[in-house]
């Protein structure tokens, strides 16, 4: 076993007292997951009932990342939604003590043989199921909006927010990220921020769980076009459910380079699926506000990653590439949303 495998095995032994001869093998870092290092591994151990073998995922905090996120929130979201109409992998252990693996981490089930890459999902054999994937994608998002955060126990890990404060809290949060992390002035996004302050949205009909990065690329799909799990809950919070709907409609996720949101469905189709599943109406003016906001938030993410890369905290090439490609696409998206780009 490698050093990290040995330490991980020691950790599991401490969490599963009935386990004997705990072994970790095949530890392999996965590409992507810019906010946390993601590894797959195989866990084996003996119990009185026989040998147990499981394929698992380790999500470990890096030194620097695309976004600063709360692992307890992500872990809590996986735990809360497991076994509900919102498919997620089973979350097993959360460890805040950095002494085990140098950084805090959590462990969850690996779902094998599924695809998350947006470039793959817009191609064969997934593209043949695009309509079905789109229906599931926005229906599941509607289920997230419909879910009661208190019944799920998520009010214990997510900060409460009053309906009328949803927009201010999120705008302030991402404006601060840009203030802190921008390496050069952002005149388009600063203009968008001023527009958002001048045109506040109405409060949501209800405060919901917001996944906060719900897009093609953050769900696992099988080759028959079934969405099997929603991933990457690291930015999840309580807020206006339109925030999630707007995020997925942002033009920067037009992976197929046409009008389809997330490379899957037109905007109208996506909204109709979401409205049906959530029982909510997507007020056009309010949705437009959240769409403009989504570009501010997006730019916040890209400038943060660019800063991490530039100062060496995390030099994963995805951070540099997103700083350039996504940063420019995000400005174009904001210009379109504000009516300055045709």
């Amino acid at each position: 076993m490698s050093n990290l495998e040995t330490r991980l095995a020691a950790y599991v032994a401490s969490r599963v007292p009935e386990a004997r001869d705990v072994r970790v093998s095949g530890l392999d870092r996965l590409f992507g997951g810019a906010s946390r290092e993601t590894y797959r591994f195989v866990l084996d151990y003996d119990t009185e009932g026989g040998r147990v073998s499981r394929r698992l995922i380790l999500r470990r905090d890096p030194a620097g990342s695309l976004i600063e996120t709360e692992r307890a929130v992500e872990f809590g979201a996986y735990r809360a939604f497991h076994g509900t109409p919102v498919p997620v992998p089973e979350a097993l252990w959360l460890e805040e003590d950095a002494s085990w693996l140098d950084h805090p981490f959590f462990v969850m089930e690996e779902l094998v043989g599924l695809e998350a890459s947006p470039q793959a999902i817009i191609g064969s054999p997934y593209a043949e199921h695009a309509e079905s994937i789109a229906r599931q994608k926005w229906t599941i998002l509607g289920e997230i909006a419909r879910a009661d955060p208190i019944a799920l126990g998520l009010d214990r890990v997510m900060t409460p927010v009053a309906p009328q404060e949803c927009w201010q809290r999120e705008l302030l949060r991402w404006e601060r990220v840009i203030d802190d992390d921008e390496l050069c002035p952002q005149p388009v996004i600063r203009a968008a921020i001023r527009w958002l302050r001048r045109n506040p949205p109405p409060p949501p009909a209800r405060v919901s769980v917001v996944h906060a990065d719900y897009r093609t690329g953050n769900f696992l799909c099988d080759t028959d076009g079934n969405i099997r799990a929603i991933l990457d809950w690291e930015m999840a919070h309580l807020g206006d459910p339109l925030e999630d709907l707007a995020w997925g409609l942002n033009p920067v996720w037009r992976w197929a380079r046409d009008e389809r949101a997330g490379g899957l469905a037109t905007r109208d189709v996506a909204i109709a699926h979401w409205e049906r599943a959530s029982g909510l109406r997507a007020d056009p003016a309010a949705l437009h506000w959240w769409e403009v906001f989504s570009s501010v938030k997006g730019q916040g993410i890209w400038v943060s990653g660019a800063k991490e890369f530039s100062f060496g905290a995390n030099q994963d090439p995805i951070l540099a590439l997103s700083g350039w490609l996504m940063g420019n696409s995000q400005d174009r998206a904001a210009l379109l949303q504000l009516g300055h780009l045709s």
Binding site: W253, W255, M326, N328
Partner: peptide
């Protein structure tokens, strides 16, 4: 600043 590899 637009790059041909950008999604949008």
């Amino acid at each position: 600043r637009r790059l041909s590899l950008g999604t949008f």
